[in-house]
Amino acid sequence: MTGISRRQVVANYAILIAFSAIAIYPIAGVILASLYPRGTNPSGFSLPPSWNFGNLATAWTEGQFGMYVRSSVIVATVVVIVSTVLSILGGYALGTMRFRGATTVFYLFLLGMIIPFEAIVVPLYYDLRALRMIDTYWALILPEISGSVAFGVFWMRAFFLSAPRSLIEAARIDGASSWHILWRVLVPLGRPAILTLVVLTFAGSWNEFFLPLVMTTDPKYITVPQGLSLFSGRYTTDTPLLAAGAVIVMLPVLVVYVFTQREFIRGMLSGALKG
């Protein structure tokens, strides 16, 4: 690291800080705006004259966010649990076993990672309507699981491929079944990979917008992003209240992110790279 002047170092930090500010400004701005008195117009560059945390409560009740959060939590919980278990099972098969058609199945899952939702949303609506699932949680849960197992299987397969073969052999010699080897030997070993998958699947489900927009009309089943979209249509002029709604929606993902940012970033980077 020779030949690098002090000036260069300072310049580098200045650039880094400037771009970090650009990245965080809109989010910080909207959080500050949510604390302004109702009906005022936050400038976006100064602290609120008084701290109105009450806006969050008002937005929560007026925007019916309690109901939307309930739907989102139900959908995300089921999607995360089912899709993670299915991904572990599928990834285990494709990562440690040989069977006819395994390669085809693997490529079909790979394809699923780049099929845009726009290509299937139209028939999906008519298919689910024929099954009488419109305005039920199933219309959100089943397609979301379908959309997330493609990446999930792929992700878990990569983990199982990297798991030490000798460990599997040893367990097998001890007479362990494949089921037992999976849950007692490999899954404990794969906790970081699984945690990453859980975090990414949760974020994907919580943020999903197009699917619920099409599949739900009954407010009872509307999830948080669409709830915010409806809320923003009603409160275009009351910026602090609208900002409070935005804060309610981003907070869960932001909290999960802050606590698991290592898994989050690693997952998005290596998931991207392996793809």
């Binding site: 299915l86 991904s87 099972l89 599928g90 285990y92 098969a93 494709l94 440690t96 076993m97 040989r98 069977f99 006819r100 395994a102 199945v105 079909l108 899952f109 699923g112 099929i115 290509a119 299937i120 028939p123 999906l124 298919d127 089943l142 397609p143 699981i145 379908s146 959309g147 197992v149 493609a150 999930g152 299987v153 073969r165 599997i168 052999e169 097998r172 494949s178």
Partner: peptide, 27 residues
């Protein structure tokens, strides 16, 4: 040894069926 075959179908089936039903078939 270490490479069971038929079991693989059972492990991969749940994920593949739901993927096929709600992505490949609509496609």
């Amino acid at each position: 040894p270490g490479e069971p075959r038929a079991v693989g179908y059972l492990f991969v089936a749940p994920a593949f069926l739901i993927y096929a039903a709600f992505t490949l078939v609509p496609l």
